[in-house]
Structures are given as C-alpha cells and as structure tokens.
C-alpha cells in the first residue's frame, strides 16, 4: 500500500463556546450567557508532513482545537479546513477528510464492554490505510491482550491501545492528544521511538499534545502554543528555542546586558545572577557578554513554555 499524501490543516478566527447558562440579572430576568469559551479567535496553520507539538496549560483549548480537525465538534464561528495542500475542505460530516484524520483521545474511544478486538476491528474496517500487522506488533510490545475488555485496562495500557490505534491507522493526519497518560517512562520512550520509526517510514502529519514538554520537544519540527483559547505562537521549534536565552554572571555585568529587554525569569545566587531574556542576542552582544565574563546559554523549551504562558502575562 502506498503512503497517502500527508494532510495539513488551517484554522481561521475559530471560536468555540460550550453550552449556555442562565443568569439572573438585577430586575430578576433570566439572561443566557455563554458558559465557557474554549477557543477565542484561533488562527493557525499545521504544515503537512511535519510532527507538530501542541502545548498549552490545562484549559488552554488544546483538546477543543484537535476535536475540530477530526470533526468531533464544530466551531461556533470561524473556518476549519483539513486536507492535502491545495485541496483542504471543511471536515464536518466530510467522509473524505474524517476517514483520513485519526484523533486519539486520552479516553481511548473504545467499546468498554466488548473485547478489545471488537473495537480494533471497528477501526480496521473504517480506516482506509489500517495496518493490522503493525497493530498486532505494537500491542505485543505494550503487552496488551486483545481479549481484554477496555474497561478493565489500566490507564497506561489504555494509552498504549490509543497509541496503537493512532499509528496503525496510518492516517495522513494523526493527532495524539495526551495519549501517554498513565504510561511508565520506559513505555513512553518505546512509544516515542515507535512514533518516529513509523513516521520516518510512512511520512504523514502528526500532532502531539503533551504536558511533558522536555520529554517530547525533540520529536517536534513545529510547535503550537495555545494560551487561554488563543494561539500564542505557531512556528518551527528552532525558532521557539531562539526566542529566549539565559545570561549567567556577575550581577552588574548581567544588568548591563539585560537593559531594555524583557526579563522572563531572574534567579540570584550571591553575586551571581541568572536571567532568562526574551529574544536572541546579536553576535556583538555575545562578544560583549563573553568579554564581561557572562555566560550565554539556551533556555529549555519547557522553561520558555512556562514563562510565555505565565498567568500574569496578560499582554498576549
């Protein structure tokens, strides 16, 4: 079977609100208010053929965003388009896109009271590019029996089943939403390796959402950070790494270099200061720093993520 053309995706000004709630106002009349705004004007592009990391704090809108791509839900307003470059379509009730987009959620979306094999057969029947051999091999590796009922599986094993479905579907757009939960570290590493091996062999678009940023950041080529329902940034992960740097050295020298820059984080240990700054340094600045005995370092993506999504930063 040939590898299908990878799918990309595009969201424009997407708003998603869940439910309404009734509220009493002054003169005791009921007013309908939108209960939750999960996405508030999100615009972004997911490149085809690339592994994209989707990061965000709890409630930032990650799960809502991916549920739109797989047509699990529909935006309140705005447009969603999914498909190979040049042929992207609205995924809602669109059999062409939905059959080519696999979203694996943490809940697993299995028939809990039937043997696992029943659920897997269901996916196998519907997925045009399903690889049964790969599914069998992965389940062996994760030590999951298809005779068990999903309801009886531990969280980690359920995640392993989700990972298996995500990879074996070979969907041109595969979205893994927090599927590592409950897996122990060796299983997670095995999962990452399997994702990379299968991705290298069958190039496709993979979106991976995770809280374990330091563990997964190297898997990504692109990264999307959501913050409070908006897209904070969507760019190659190398660009994100260049968004910050750290300076470590004598307080006075560091203060001089820091002047006029946004300080994301500052840590003081005696006369030595370490600051995390936004933006990159020019070569001249690097030379100045070196001459002043200040060490220039990189900032882990995890730290950048934490600083950029700090709740008190209301200026996005």
């Amino acid at each position: 079977m040939t590898t299908p053309t990878p799918f990309g995706a595009r969201l424009e000004h997407v708003v998603v609100r869940y439910g309404t709630r009734r509220e009493m106002v002054g003169d005791s009349t009921l007013v309908k208010r939108e209960a939750t705004t999960a996405l508030d004007g999100a615009t972004l592009t997911i490149r085809p053929g690339v592994i994209t990391g989707l990061l965000g704090r709890n409630g930032a809108g990650k799960s809502t965003l991916v549920s739109l791509l797989a047509a699990f839900a529909r935006p309140t307003s705005g447009t969603v388009a999914v498909g190979p470059e040049g042929a992207q379509e609205d995924p809602w009730e669109n059999a062409w896109t939905t059959s080519n987009v696999q979203l694996v959620r943490e809940s697993g979306d299995l028939m809990d009271d039937e043997k696992l094999s029943v659920s897997l057969d269901y996916y196998a029947d519907l997925r045009p590019h399903w690889d049964a051999d790969l599914a069998g091999r992965l389940l062996d590796r994760f030590e999951v029996s298809t005779r068990t009922k999903p309801g009886a599986l531990s969280r980690g094993k359920k995640s392993a089943v989700g990972a298996t479905i995500g990879l074996a579907s070979r969907a041109p757009l595969t979205i893994l939403d927090e599927v590592y939960l409950g897996m122990d570290a060796p299983t997670r590493y095995a999962f990452y390796s399997e994702v990379l091996a299968d991705y290298a062999e069958h190039p496709r678009t993979i979106v991976l959402s995770s809280h374990l940023v330091e563990e997964v950041e190297r898997l990504f080529e692109d990264v999307v950070i959501l913050d409070r329902g908006g897209v904070l940034l969507a760019e190659p992960v190398e660009d994100l790494r260049a968004r910050g740097h750290s300076l470590t050295g004598p307080a006075a020298a560091v203060a001089e270099l820091t002047d006029g820059r946004r300080v994301l984080h500052e840590q003081r240990l005696g006369g030595t200061v370490q600051v995390t700054l936004e933006g990159a340094l020019t070569d001249d600045e690097r030379a100045t720093a070196r001459a002043a005995g200040v060490e220039v370092g990189s900032v882990p993506v995890q730290d950048l993520f934490v600083h950029l999504t700090e709740p008190r930063r209301a200026d996005r």
Partner: peptide, 13 residues
C-alpha cells in the same frame, strides 16, 4: 531514521 529513533529526535532534525 535509526538516528532519530535511537536518540528520539525528529528525523528532519
């Protein structure tokens, strides 16, 4: 591919 899976980094990198 071997490099990517061994060190768990993106193959493009």
């Amino acid at each position: 591919t071997q490099f990517a899976t061994t060190f768990r980094i993106n193959p493009a990198t």
